[in-house]
């Protein structure tokens, strides 16, 4: 489904974020990308989202080279992905409910579907009571859950989660991971970037470990070893 071939990303002038990274992700797989802060985890997700362009190498998504994707094809790619950003990236001028509706409307979902699915997802992420609040009125944990809800509302093929538990207490962390596992069991591919050792070890899923931009380990099942 996803293939990285010798991907290198250099930020000018000479900062190497990712170097010669190659791996593949199969459909319905749950892959964790582990590594210290600055190891290149977020850069890999940004490259997959075509938020950044690689300096060298190719990335294929369903047979299409997205390292050379045209601007007009970006919506096609991004509608198939659901991303949980490290800094949430919720629309500040819209409520939690509207943030989810917005994504549904982008993919031209009917009003009937929107009215049915959004309350369900709000229930799943535990934000029914906060549906009409704006992001500025939510706590860190609530923002994180709103971002997860928005990422999965349109049933994407792949969920990209960049440190989705970074601002959560252990109780909510466990809930979020359970949620990601459940989404994966329902057939959605999940790519989780985290430096949380405990989460990775408890998952018992494939782990790609990065160090200074290079893949130093790719094991299934894997553990957090650095």
């Amino acid at each position: 489904m996803i293939s990285f071939y010798n991907i290198t990303k250099i930020y000018p002038p000479h900062t190497v974020a990712v170097k010669d990274v190659s791996f593949q992700v199969q459909e319905k797989e749950f892959v964790s990308i582990a590594g210290r802060s600055g190891a290149g985890k977020t850069t890999l997700l940004k490259l997959l989202l075509a938020q950044e362009q690689s300096t060298r190498g190719q990335i294929f998504f369903d047979g299409q080279d997205i390292s050379q994707i045209k601007k007009k094809d970006l919506p096609w790619l991004r509608k198939r992905l659901g991303t949980v950003f490290q800094d949430y990236k919720l629309l500040a001028s819209k409520t939690v409910y509207e943030n989810m509706v917005y994504v549904m409307e982008i993919i031209s979902q009917t009003k009937r579907h929107i009215l049915k699915d959004v309350p369900q997802v709000l229930e799943i992420v535990g934000l029914t009571e906060r549906a009409n609040n704006f992001p500025a009125q939510l706590s860190g944990g609530e923002l994180q859950r709103a971002a997860i809800g928005r990422a999965l509302i349109h049933r994407p093929d792949i969920i990209l989660a960049d440190e989705p538990t970074g601002n959560l207490d252990p109780y909510h962390t466990r809930d979020v991971i359970q949620l990601l596992l459940k989404i994966n069991q329902m057939g959605t591919t999940v790519i989780l970037a985290t430096h949380n050792k405990e989460i990775i070890n408890r998952l018992g899923k494939r782990v790609i470990t990065l160090e200074e931009g290079k893949v130093i380990r790719d094991e299934d099942p894997g553990r957090f070893i650095l």
Partner: peptide, 18 residues
């Protein structure tokens, strides 16, 4: 003022027209 919002809209897959 809406610069950040435009960036987010693009990241979640909104077309230029939307």
């Amino acid at each position: 003022h809406a610069k950040k919002e435009i960036e987010v809209m693009r990241l979640v897959g909104a077309s230029d027209w939307f």
